[in-house]
Design a binder for these strands. Structure first.
Length: 551
RNA sequence: UGGGUUAUUGUGUAAAGGUAGCACUACAGAUUUUGAUUCUGUCUGUCUUGGUUCGAAUCCAGGUAACCCAACCA
């Protein structure tokens, strides 16, 4: 039974265009500005653009929208390329809006010759003033009626560096009374004596977004140019330039951007978090950046599945973080190697197990048998999780308590006989007896237990630093709250355990390995690790039904 | 108070005039050597008021609400 999956509105447009022969094949593009790191919102656009081309047999260009030299940098270009590749996509061409500066300059000249552009000497304040407001029409600048010759001369001089920043701009001549503010003679070129990351000092005039984006799409024969809702008003201008320049008719389609609970998505806010030290860089595992998710241990597949599940539509949305986490666990559950680690240790001594004895016990690496098994050392002195013992057991408690029995995962069933407290009243040691015939794999004891807990042999365990991450913000939508969004940062977004116990096999971990620390969550090695000190990041917790009951 | 866009369960997203479906979340139960996974089940929805129609989430008219637009940013 193959169930017909419904199309999103862009797929419907594409299928209509293809079947009506409006276009023979499709071309999309992903057009980031290299002024910051990519975040999970960008991955929606990436998956959509690349996914559409893959589905319909088209091409996808990676085009850097680098028309503003003062904010852009090659550091960002490199990170963006790395992130897209990591997500699993390959672009057809790597291009830059700056590749088209000569063509765009010629386009501007063409508009001047058609008397559709003019040089304005007004200051930005004067231009803003004459622009009017959404409810009042604008008024023409005194420079609007300059002759074509004069405009040509002045624009050439602008390009040749005769004028200082802000002294002159080139504007399209459209309609100062238009209801769309963007059509009120928009600025299309401005003077910036700035170093550009690719063209260096060749240019001192740079095209604005509106004069670069549509024409770049057109130059590349992009058929479906997908952007977010806030660009709806730009579409009219986008089409105006294409029409007046009589170039390939790319078409713009808008979709809602991704918003997610418990985080912020604007580059401005993310930059603040980095610059003001609320996080440790763009790839801090608490950041919603692709590099942050990668470092935290997310898999490319989980993010692609997430982008598939959230859909594409034109209404504002706020996606539950739990959907992303569901996609993550869904992937990790079948791929992560199962190992044991004790984050908050308490000593357990098995009084009837020979103190000099060590056994190698068999443990499965994962739920799938093809993942194989490994041997783990067992002895009479173990570390177990402090939270797995209760002096006075709660209702429905089926872990360790005085007189109760539990199974040690992959080992024996033990019975708690007694315990000791230290001078602070904290439990320091638990004493148990074990049932030799209850050995994992060939249990003939006939004892049934409700609880199974993880453990580590104290003599054999290695140590590591473990970083536990929680949501970055305390509130679902920090941007919508009154006041500074930074005041809603979760103070417990990072908990560092400087010395936790891990099973010996983990000392050989590699950066790409994914683990489930049994009963504790999914973890991965952090790049801060070195031969002296291993560092693990918690990628995501396991679902915790007991935690809810206990509350 | 100009223009544009949108409104389906707690959250997403389908239904192209004909059974309001799917996923996440939440809750309940079964299985479990991870209180995980897996399996089974349950709950809640068409912004509003009218109209057209045998029949409206869908078409029409009027409200309402949210978001976007007045950078030499993208």
């Amino acid at each position: 039974m193959s169930e017909e999956k419904s199309l999103n509105f862009i797929e419907e447009i594409i299928e209509a265009d293809l079947s009506s022969n409006k276009c023979a094949s499709i071309s999309t593009r992903f057009p980031p500005e290299p002024n910051g790191y990519l975040h999970i919102g960008h991955s929606k656009a990436i998956c959509l653009n690349f996914g559409l081309a893959a589905k319909y047999g088209g091409t996808t260009n990676l085009r850097f929208d680098d028309t503003n030299p003062v904010t852009e940098d090659t550091e960002y270009v490199e990170s963006i390329k790395e992130d897209i590749k990591w997500l699993g996509f390959n672009w057809t061409n790597e291009l830059y809006a700056s590749d088209y500066f000569d063509k765009l300059y010629a386009f501007a000249l063409e508009l001047i010759e058609k008397d559709l552009a003019y040089v304005d000497d007004s200051s930005s304040e004067e231009i803003a003033l004459l622009k009017g407001t959404p409810t009042e029409p604008g008024k023409p600048s005194e420079f609007r009626s300059r002759s074509i010759e004069e405009n040509r001369t002045l624009f050439t001089e602008m390009k040749n560096g005769v004028y200082k920043d802000g002294e002159k701009v080139l504007r399209a001549k459209i309609d100062m009374a238009h209801t769309n503010m963007l059509m009120r003679d928009p600025i299309i070129y401005r003077i910036k004596h700035a170093h550009h990351h690719r063209t260096a000092n060749k240019w001192c005039i740079y095209p604005m977004y509106d004069f670069a984006h549509g024409q770049s799409d057109s130059i590349e024969n992009i058929t479906h140019s997908i952007c977010t809702l806030e660009f709806i008003p730009h579409r009219e201008l986008y089409e105006w330039f294409i029409e007046k320049l009589n170039i390939f008719p790319s078409r713009q389609y808008e979709m809602a951007r991704l918003n997610m609970t418990y985080t912020v998505m604007s580059k401005r806010k993310l930059l603040q978090l980095v610059n003001e030290g609320y996080v440790n860089g763009w790839d801090d595992p608490r950041m919603p950046t692709i590099s942050g998710f990668r470092r935290k241990g997310y898999t490319p597949l989980s993010i692609r599945n997430f982008c598939e599940k959230i859909g594409v539509a034109r209404r504002e949305n706020m996606i539950d973080l739990s959907l992303l986490e569901f996609c993550l666990r869904e992937d990790l559950n079948v791929t992560a190697k199962r190992v044991m680690a004790v984050l908050d240790p308490i000593k357990l001594v098995i009084t009837n197990y020979d103190a000099d004895k060590t056994e190698e016990l068999i443990a499965e690496n994962g739920p799938d048998e093809t993942m194989g098994t490994r041997l783990i050392p067992f002895s009479n002195t173990l570390w177990i999780e402090r939270e797995d013992f209760m002096e006075v057991p709660a209702k429905k408690w089926f872990r360790l308590a005085p007189g109760s029995v539990v199974r040690l995962k992959n080992a024996y069933i033990v019975k708690c006989e007694s315990f000791e407290k230290n001078e602070n009243g904290d439990i320091s040691t638990i004493y148990c007896t074990y049932y030799p015939e209850s050995k994992s794999g060939n249990d003939t004891s006939g004892i049934s237990v409700k609880g199974t807990i993880h453990w580590l042999s104290a003599a054999h365990a290695a140590t590591a630093e473990i970083r536990l991450y929680d949501r970055l913000f305390k509130v679902e939508n920090p941007s919508a709250e009154e006041g500074d969004f930074k005041s809603f940062i979760n103070p417990d977004s990072l908990t560092t355990i400087s010395s936790a116990y891990i099973e010996p096999s983990l000392v050989e971990s590699k950066l790409d390995d994914r683990f489930q620390f049994i009963r504790k969550g999914y973890f991965c090695l952090d790049k801060d690790s070195n031969p002296e000190k291993l560092v693990f990041n918690r990628t995501v917790t396991l679902k915790d039904t007991w935690g809810k009951i206990a509350d």
